[in-house]
């Protein structure tokens, strides 16, 4: 039987060195995320939201505490394993889309698969996903030829390419106007509504966006404050 809890974060601490001093960004964060749920993380700028997202995405390591995702303790992941784990299990969506300007839209979407161990049906899967986000007419366009909304839709397709179980989104509508942002949120709603849908963990500043989530966490002074 599948575990209900997908992510378990236990008392994680993360600090950065700034010259001779040290800044503690996360001071014992604890929470759990259910499989297939949509979680929104709210917090002021500089509160450590992106740091927490990076830790969940294995891009950063904690100073202390435990992160367990899908039964795998991140401490057990060595650098190489972390790359593979990230490639196979996690899809990233960034506020600034981060598309490679040298590649076409289709190639950008195929990118995670190109670094993965299985390359079968890569193009077919990418085309399916681009169809899903309504971008089949833009396959050979470069990112510079696309609008912000189109780039973000392509970034969602890219994040879904390897069929990850976890989507980490860092303010995906933060750089878009309200209409385009609404279109992006529609896609997230569809993803969430699908049977066996992915687990979505999203950073946002917007209470309206947070209202769409199943769970909302507030990060304040380095700890989760849900009061």
């Amino acid at each position: 039987m599948e575990q209900k809890t997908f992510i378990e974060v236990q008392n994680i601490v993360k600090s950065y060195r700034l010259g001779k001093s040290s800044i503690e960004v996360l001071r014992g964060v604890n929470f759990a995320v259910e499989r297939g749920s949509w979680t929104a993380l709210l917090g002021a700028s500089g509160s450590g939201k992106t740091t927490l997202l990076n830790i969940l995405g294995t891009l950063e390591r904690v100073d202390s505490g435990e992160v367990i995702c899908n039964g795998i303790n991140y401490r057990s992941l060595r650098f190489r394993n972390a790359n593979m784990f990230r490639n196979e299990n996690i899809g990233f969506i960034f506020q600034l889309y981060h598309m490679l300007p040298e590649l076409t839209l289709l190639q950008n979407v195929m990118l995670p698969g190109m670094f993965g161990s299985v390359r079968r049906d890569l193009k077919f899967t990418a085309l399916q996903l681009l169809d899903k986000v309504g971008l089949t007419h833009r396959l050979k366009h470069r990112p510079s030829e696309l609008s912000g909304g189109e780039q973000q839709r392509a970034a969602i397709a890219r994040a879904l390419l390897n069929s990850p179980e976890l989507i980490l989104a860092d303010e995906p509508t933060g750089n878009l106007d309200s209409h385009t942002g609404g279109e992006i949120l529609e896609i997230f709603k569809q993803l969430h509504a699908e049977k066996n849908g992915v687990t979505i963990f999203m950073i946002t500043h917007s209470d309206e966006v947070a209202a769409l989530a199943d769970t909302v966490f507030h990060l304040k002074d380095g700890v989760i404050d849900n009061c």
Partner: peptide, 16 residues
Amino acid sequence: TREIGLLKALGASSAS
């Protein structure tokens, strides 16, 4: 720099 970060986020290893 940012694209290198992205490639790593997408699963590219340092060796890659």
